[in-house]
Design a binder for these strands. Structure first.
Length: 248
DNA sequence: AACCGCATCAACCGCGATATC
DNA sequence: AGATATCGCGGTTGATGCGGT
């Protein structure tokens, strides 16, 4: 009854990934595509659990990932989406091309949270902190879902230009019924559909959908064209440069 | 130069949802 | 139908780097 265990836990390595392990995982996925993660460590010759492989790939090795800090626009979008969705990081990440839920979660906890607090805004409710907040900050945003375009003047993200960004992004979201609906419903992401199509689908299903699988293989092979087989760590930057082309 | 505290982020853990037997 | 495995998500931890003293 049931399935075989995910991994036997014995001899499974933990901790930071080495360049060699990364290379093995990348080579395996480029060659075979993303099939069932449970089988990946064995087939790729890794002493890792499948879960760890999936995490490493989705959070770090995927060639379509952007690296580096979030831009102001991205940051503001995260704030806005968080006001609507709460800590549903995967949903938020789905709206930011090349960003992972882990990355956004980290950025939220280390940067955005502090900025909001500094601005007198509760990062959980996105409402003004009444006790500590400065009088002018509680003016124009409160209970409604779009009230988080925090436009105060005491922090870097809140200068006049970012104010415009805030309202622009907010307008886009508020005025786009389909986007709003999709944010609330469990709709597939706009940007990373190809990845989710392959990544979230168990091998059996993937095999049933040959077109989808082949598309992903083709896409992964495209990655090889720009030198991923020569993987050293700086190649990911090259990947970044080429990903937009490839995805497009 | 050495120590300390803080910030950052990759990776792990545990849980719920879903799939499979 | 129930038991169990797998997947994906969100919370948390720990290693590392950096700046200040």
């Amino acid at each position: 009854m049931g399935r075989q265990p995910c991994c036997d836990k014995l001899g499974v390595k933990k901790g930071p990934w080495t360049a060699e392990e990364d290379r093995k995982l990348i080579n395996f996925i480029l060659t075979n595509g993303q099939c069932c993660w449970r089988a990946v460590p064995k087939l790729a010759g890794l002493r890792r659990c499948g879960k760890s492989c999936r995490l490493r790939w989705t959070n770090y090795l995927r060639p379509d990932l952007k690296r580096g800090l979030l831009s102001q626009d991205e940051e503001q979008l995260v704030i806005d989406l968080h006001a609507r969705l709460g800590n549903r990081w995967s949903k938020i990440a789905a709206r930011l091309p090349g960003r992972t839920d882990n990355e956004i979660k980290n950025h939220w906890n280390t940067h955005i949270k502090k900025k909001l607090l500094k601005m007198g805004i509760d990062p959980v409710t996105h409402q003004p902190l009444n006790k500590e907040s400065k009088p002018e900050e509680s003016s124009s945003h409160a209970e409604t879902s779009g009230d988080n375009n925090n436009t105060t003047e005491n922090d870097g993200i809140t200068n006049s230009s970012s104010e415009e960004n805030c309202s622009t992004l907010l307008d886009i979201i508020s005025n786009d019924e389909s986007l709003l609906t999709s944010l609330w419903l469990d709709e597939p992401p706009l940007v990373d559909a190809s990845w989710n199509g392959a990544g979230a689908t168990p091998a059996t299903e993937t095999c049933n959908n040959e077109t989808c699988w082949e598309d992903n293989i083709a896409w992964l092979l495209d990655c090889q064209d720009f030198g991923i087989q020569d993987f050293g760590f700086d190649c990911l930057n090259d990947n970044e440069l080429n990903t937009s082309k490839t995805v497009a």
